[in-house]
Amino acid sequence: MSDAALSLPPADSLFRRNLRDFRRNRLAMASLVVVLVFVVMAVAAPLIAPQDPNETDLFRRLQPPGWMAGGDWAFPFGCDALGRDILSRIIYGARISIFIGLAVIVLATGVGIAAGLAAGYFRGWVDVVISRIVDILLGFPYLIFAIGLMAMMGPGLLNIVLALAYKEWVIPCRVVRGETLAVRELEYVEAARALGAGPRHIMGREILPNILSPVIVVSTIRMAHVIILEASLSFLGLGVQPPTASWGSMVSDGRAFILEAWWVSTFPGLAILLLVLAINVASQGLRDAFDPRFSE
């Protein structure tokens, strides 16, 4: 038998092996399915939503959910103070939550990776400047910082993303910097330098692929935080402006009637809970699969 005929295992990167570990984790997979359901809901909102989320009808004011006396199954989760269908608003609200969560994380992770790599690789004054900015930003309470920025910039979808990303990048940045400091000392980075690699190549090809796992894990966990923060801003009236449906503002709308019409606040609140919980459990599973300290 020639050597070529030896059955070689298929090319199998560390990443793929980790992914396989993740698939075996049932709870994490179930959570991932929940997250995906929310994503599909957000993407296909106009097709799924039974009603127009912004159509008001004062005859339906605070109409209870379908299964209660006085309810109507056309409005399964009931209606709010303006008679709008709560289920449809939750479905449309998923768009806001997921879009802002994703946009903030993508923006923050991009900036954080660039800043963290530069700080960890170049050291010296680059590191000092970036690390001090990070320390200063970490000193601000997150929500208050975001509220201040929103007050300055005014409401709006783009402004929420900016207000949250403004501080969020600090977290991936610290992770990337720490990992870079460890990886830059490794033999294969030295070997790359000995072969004439420049800083760009070393940061992008030698270091980045090897530190991506913790960054992905942290980013997914942080996405849940960002969704809560967006809900908090909307709850305070600083987020997306009415009549656009956002879970935070829906919870806020129901505050006044929480005793006589509990459904107005409860269902959007549950939506936040469910999505955040699912993201957290899924990212926990990701961490277990991707962090070498947790693998067998």
Partner: peptide
């Protein structure tokens, strides 16, 4: 100097087990 490294002078590292980047083929 960077152009000379790898093209005119090459170096192999002490520890072969860690001198290759684990993330690339």
């Amino acid at each position: 100097m960077r152009a000379i490294r790898g093209r005119d002078i090459a170096m192999t590292m002490q520890d072969a087990l860690t001198a290759l980047n684990p993330a690339l083929t």
